[in-house]
């Protein structure tokens, strides 16, 4: 402020749409930068993901070794290794673990400060989460994939379209995961303590997202129901199946389309919940 007049701030002359995109971009950037300061945690987490990668990969390969034709649930050995190692990389990108930042802010009442900002909390948190995911994609996705590729034969995509489709699928997975986490956290507006719902989310997302085992190992009717009726397979299983080319191009695209539908549904739901929560907050006070 030094050397400037204390003039009244004016609305920026840019068009509203352009300025809101700039704001969103700035928020994404700050989410990204925030995680660059957690370097030690990143190293520790990556190490752990790699150890679990070895565990899961060996077990699934042992299953393949004793399966007739060596293709359990339609994956060959290379596809299984790809499934495991890309999965270990994506874990931190899609953030399958507990995220309780919003619930904590609601519990302590700090969320009131978020409501004072000219950007809606949903937008602000989504932007920050995309920034976080971008950072994780650069720092936490690559090491497990490199280690996996060095120790196991991975599946090399046969179709060039798989690569862009995979990236799109990861982006959608982050949005779907964010939507779920936001809704789970928002229960704190009503319950005050969201630890229970968060625990259920972590459990459900791990198993039904495809982390413990590929969902294709389940009976077909069950897998299909999970995919259509819950957003959880869209969080991890879909991007991994896309990358492993488990299905033909049409099915591949269809699964990503399903992800997109879930992303829209969840963001809409989160938006409605946030509005109701704000109205409740305004009426009843924190």
């Amino acid at each position: 402020m030094a050397g400037k007049d204390a003039s009244v701030l004016t609305i920026s002359p840019d068009s509203p749409k352009r300025s809101s995109i700039t704001t969103f971009g700035a928020l994404v950037g700050s989410g990204f930068r925030r995680y660059t300061t957690y370097r030690q945690a990143t190293i520790a987490g990556t190490f752990t993901n790699i150890v679990f990668g070895y565990l899961r990969c060996y077990v699934l390969l042992a299953v393949a070794a004793s399966t007739l034709g060596g293709r359990p649930a339609g994956y060959d050995r290379e596809q299984l290794a790809t499934y495991v190692w890309l999965g270990q990389g994506l874990l931190s990108v899609i953030m399958l673990w507990a995220w309780s930042e919003l619930a904590e802010r609601i519990r302590t009442g700090d969320v009131a400060a978020d409501l004072l900002r000219p950007v809606s909390p949903l937008t602000a948190y989504l932007a920050a989460d995309l920034g976080r995911a971008g950072h994780a994609m650069l720092t936490r996705f690559i090491p497990p994939v490199v280690v996996g590729a060095l120790c196991f034969p991975l599946h090399v995509p046969a179709r060039w379209t798989t690569v862009p489709l995979f990236l799109l699928s990861v982006l959608l997975a982050v949005v779907v995961s964010f939507g779920c986490r936001y809704l789970v956290n928002a229960t704190a507006y009503w319950l005050h303590d969201a630890r229970g719902p968060i625990l259920l989310w972590v459990l459900g997302a791990g198993v039904l997202g495809g982390l413990y085992f590929p969902l294709r190992l389940l009976p077909d009717w069950l897998a299909a129901t999970l995919w259509l009726a819950t957003p959880l397979p869209s969080i991890l299983q879909t991007p991994l199946d896309v990358a492993a080319e488990r299905d033909g191009p049409a099915m591949q695209a269809g699964l990503v389309g399903l992800q997109a539908c879930w992303a829209v549904v969840l963001l809409t739901l989160a938006w409605i919940v946030q509005r109701r929560a704000e109205r409740r907050l305004v009426v009843q006070g924190g």
Binding site: L60, P72, R195, L200, G206, V207, Y212, L217, L218
Partner: peptide
């Protein structure tokens, strides 16, 4: 809820083994 969740975690660990054995009879 945490009680249920914790039991759930152990149930899923065992469940994972059962699911893997759907694909094969020996690991």
């Amino acid at each position: 809820i945490e009680l249920v969740g914790n039991v759930g975690a152990t149930v899923f660990d065992v469940l994972s083994v059962l699911v893997l054995f759907r694909a094969t009879d020996r690991i």
